[in-house]
């Protein structure tokens, strides 16, 4: 059978999600953000919630998330997305509200907002991209940067005496009564992506069922910041990031 005969709408098995628009994404080649964006767009659409979803964009690489997924967005100040999401959800309980935050936004400047939103059990989803580096500002040390890992502000490698230890914030959030789902996922293979999508959907369903806060951490890559190819980054992530940030469900109640 000729390829042209296969390429027909009825034979389509995968394509860009309907809620992803055609704006070219500003992310670097191979960036994990794009895949996570696609998953959010798919889950929101699958749930039939496109008209009822409010996304809270962070400061960091995902600051422009609002340019790519066709839902309403609020761009928050650095680290404050969980506070913004708290109000958006409490004032609109019928809406599906999520924040989308990087490691610096969520686990450094916004630690208080993150912990307290989770502790109150806000009915929101926190999508957490952990790539252990500040991408947007050019590759500085993040709270989740691994020991020995080099960044532009720890050029000789992260040193625990100077910089403290990598912050496993999801493990902290597990301890809070307000969280109902805390899980660590990756998006480096099709299988991992399918699994992550299920967790994302579960989190969004939790938020609409009033179960509390769901935190979906994505252990991610930053090819530009790590100074590797995207493929090398995935391999480095599995070899180095995952031992520090083990994958799987940390809490599901």
């Amino acid at each position: 059978m000729d390829t042209l005969e296969i390429i027909k709408p009825e034979n389509k098995v995968y394509g860009k999600p309907r809620l992803m628009n055609d704006n070219p994404m500003h992310y670097c080649p191979g960036c994990s953000h794009g895949v996570v964006h696609k998953l959010i767009a798919e889950v929101v659409d699958d749930m039939g919630m496109a008209e009822k979803t409010i996304g809270i964009a962070p400061v960091g690489c995902a600051v422009f998330a609002y340019n790519y997924i066709d839902i309403d967005w609020i761009e928050a100040a650095h680290g404050r997305a969980p506070a913004v999401a708290t109000a958006a959800k409490r004032l609109n309980p019928d809406k599906m509200v999520f924040s989308y935050q990087g490691d610096g936004d969520l686990a450094a400047i916004g630690t208080a907002e993150t912990i307290h939103a989770c502790n109150r059990g806000e009915n929101i989803v926190i999508v957490f991209i952990n790539n252990a580096i500040y991408g947007m500002t050019g590759g500085q040390m993040a709270p989740t940067t691994l020991l020995g890992m080099k960044t532009s502000t720890c050029p000789y490698g992260r040193n625990e005496h100077l910089n403290g230890y990598p912050l496993k914030i999801s493990d902290l959030l597990v301890q809070l009564e307000g969280t109902c789902l805390v899980t660590r996922e990756t998006v480096h293979t099709a299988a991992a992506i399918k699994k992550a999508k299920k967790m994302l959907r579960k989190g969004f369903e939790n938020s609409m069922n009033g179960k509390g806060t769901s935190v979906i951490e994505f252990v991610s890559t930053c090819a530009s910041g790590w100074k590797m190819t995207p493929d090398q980054s995935n391999k480095w992530m599995m070899e180095n990031m995952v031992p520090m940030y083990p994958l799987g469900i940390l809490k599901d109640k």
Partner: peptide, 13 residues
């Protein structure tokens, strides 16, 4: 800080 950002979020709605 959280309170004013909650105001920001509510106002944005």
């Amino acid at each position: 800080v959280a309170a004013i950002n909650m105001v920001y979020g509510g106002a944005a709605c």
